[in-house]
């Protein structure tokens, strides 16, 4: 149900832009107005969400420790999985954000009917698909900066050259195009074929996958199969970035489809789970040093509570304490 609705939504978006551009000629709407709206929503929403999170304090220092703590000098601490200082936290966050350290730990648990009853197997599939998808998407995104720069900086051209090193096809296929499609499709397949995952998956989980798959596939089509006037496209993108938008003739509707799906992704981003991009940096179980006993962590709203003082306690039990020969403050 959720799968189908997500797919239908994405197909509907495609239909809307197809009709809008191809039949109604609304190139200015899809090429200029909506992209600007989307970018405003994206930036505004992103900042709003980060501020919304940041507004709440971190009352307690609650790192999840995944390695040996720092205690005695002869016991080797694991500063990257259980950081005791800022450097350790930095490395832990780098490993988490760039290499998905926690996902890498993933295991698969099975009930084995004979022998040991519960078995654990390492399970790198999720990690592989996730890392392929995220890194490929990042590099694809960066490669696209060639549409928004003139002259194109050397490093972007360099990145393109590296990405296309297999030199297959004209124009060459990029490795990241393949990895992006494989990653997203793999994550989608995984979600569809595991009954547990299907049970927990929402529209909010399928929709971004279909959307990004749509972006990737239309991108591949545009580059390799549906040739459009690339000069006009660049004229358009440069117009957007320099705030003097133009909507030249001769741009294929496939480009508008691709571009509109990206527009939708930007607009949708801050209001969705995709904000884990920002959230991962703010997660208190990961971004704090485990130095609780060394440095006092201050809670701005430390609750005021009623206490049972020693004096009250002694009043309650003085007779018994005296009778048992336990020292008391007031005889």
């Amino acid at each position: 149900m959720n799968v189908l609705s997500s797919l239908v939504v994405v197909l509907a978006l495609i239909l809307v832009v197809y009709l809008g551009v191809d039949k109604a000629g609304l190139t200015a709407l899809f090429g200029t107005v909506l992209p600007y709206v989307a970018i405003v929503l994206f930036l505004g929403g992103f900042i709003y969400r980060i501020l919304y999170w940041a507004k709440s304090p971190v009352p307690f220092r609650i790192p999840t420790t995944c390695g040996q703590q720092k205690t005695l000098p002869w016991i080797k601490p694991n500063n990257f999985d259980n950081p005791h200082n800022g450097f350790g936290v930095f490395v832990r966050m780098v490993l988490e954000v760039l290499f998905f350290r926690s996902l890498f730990r993933n295991t698969r648990t099975q009930i084995v009917k004979d022998g040991p009853k519960v078995g654990y197997a390492s399970n790198y599939w999720l990690w592989f698909l996730a890392i392929a998808f995220h890194w490929a998407f990042l590099i694809v995104f960066v490669r696209h900066l060639r549409f928004f720069t003139e002259p194109i900086p050397e490093w972007i051209l360099g990145l393109q050259a590296v990405d296309g090193f297999i030199e297959y096809g004209v124009p060459v296929f990029y490795i990241t195009s393949v990895l992006l499609v494989v990653g997203v499709a793999g994550l989608l397949v995984r979600r569809l074929f595991s009954s547990q995952l299907r049970y927990i998956s929402l529209l909010n989980d399928y929709f971004p996958l279909f959307l990004i798959l749509g972006i990737a596939l239309t991108g591949v089509l545009l580059r390799h199969y549906v040739k459009t006037d690339i000069v006009s496209v660049k004229e358009m993108t440069m117009g957007l970035i320099s705030f003097s938008p133009v909507n030249p003739e001769g741009v294929h509707v496939m480009f508008y489809i691709h571009f509109f799906l990206v527009t939708c992704l930007f607009a949708y981003f801050p209001f969705s789970k995709l904000m884990h991009l920002g959230g991962v940096f703010l997660s208190p179980t990961r971004n704090l040093a485990n130095n609780n006993r060394e440095v006092r962590h201050i809670n701005p709203w430390n609750p005021k509570v009623k206490l049972h003082s020693y004096a009250e306690y002694e009043d309650d039990f003085r007779d018994k304490m005296v009778a048992a020969g336990i020292p008391v403050d007031k005889e």
């Binding site: 999170w53 304090p57 927990i200 959230g279 208190p284």
Partner: peptide, 14 residues
Amino acid sequence: KYRSFKIFMDCCVR
């Protein structure tokens, strides 16, 4: 009161 609560409510990708 808790940033953790907000983040854990918002960031899960299932």
